[in-house]
Simulated scan of single mutants.
Amino acid sequence: MTYSLIQLAPGAYDLLLNGEVVGSVVRNSSYQPYTWTAELLEDVPPARRPTPFAELEHVFASLEDLCAWLGDPPIKTNNRHGDAWER
């Protein structure tokens, strides 16, 4: 399974699995220390959740920790000049 993230706004990403949106990644606060949540869109039984989701939501201390948990997916972000770059 291959995940990727597409930034929607600062602190908000669509979470894609094999090119399909399956969830979101959001920053939970406007002030440091931030926490980040990865959340599936559908409430599916545990047996049908994509790896590594044991729960519908997982909270992380940093975006880097969340990305490591997902297997370091590529991230497409938008910068202030309207250009996008990929990690």
Rank of each mutant, 00 (worst) to 15 (best):
M1H: 13
T2P: 03
Y3Q: 01
Y3G: 07
Y3L: 09
L5K: 04
I6Q: 08
I6P: 06
I6F: 00
Q7T: 07
L8F: 03
L8D: 11
L8H: 12
A9V: 04
A9F: 04
A9K: 14
A9N: 09
G11E: 00
G11V: 10
Y13H: 11
D14F: 07
L15S: 03
N18L: 10
N18T: 12
E20Q: 09
E20G: 02
V21N: 01
V21M: 04
V21H: 04
G23I: 07
G23D: 07
S24M: 09
V25R: 01
V26R: 12
N28G: 13
S29F: 03
S29R: 13
S29Y: 10
S30R: 12
S30M: 03
Y31K: 07
Y31L: 05
Y31T: 11
Q32W: 01
P33K: 14
P33W: 11
Y34S: 03
T35E: 12
T35Y: 07
T35H: 12
W36M: 05
W36S: 01
W36H: 08
W36L: 09
W36P: 04
W36I: 10
T37W: 00
T37R: 08
T37V: 09
A38Q: 04
A38D: 02
L40E: 05
L40T: 04
L40W: 03
L40H: 02
L40C: 01
E42H: 12
D43E: 11
D43Y: 08
V44I: 14
P45H: 11
P46R: 13
A47Y: 11
A47P: 00
A47L: 13
R48I: 00
R48P: 02
R49N: 09
P50L: 13
P52E: 09
F53R: 03
A54C: 12
A54P: 08
A54M: 13
E55Y: 13
E55F: 03
L56I: 14
H58K: 05
H58S: 08
V59W: 11
V59P: 00
F60M: 08
F60H: 06
A61I: 08
S62Y: 06
L63E: 00
E64K: 08
E64T: 09
D65V: 10
D65I: 07
D65K: 15
L66W: 10
L66S: 06
C67W: 06
W69D: 10
L70T: 03
D72A: 05
D72I: 09
P73S: 15
P74D: 13
I75M: 14
K76L: 15
K76N: 13
K76P: 03
N78D: 03
N79W: 02
H81E: 10
H81L: 15
D83L: 14
D83H: 05
D83T: 06
A84S: 15
W85H: 10
W85L: 11
R87V: 07
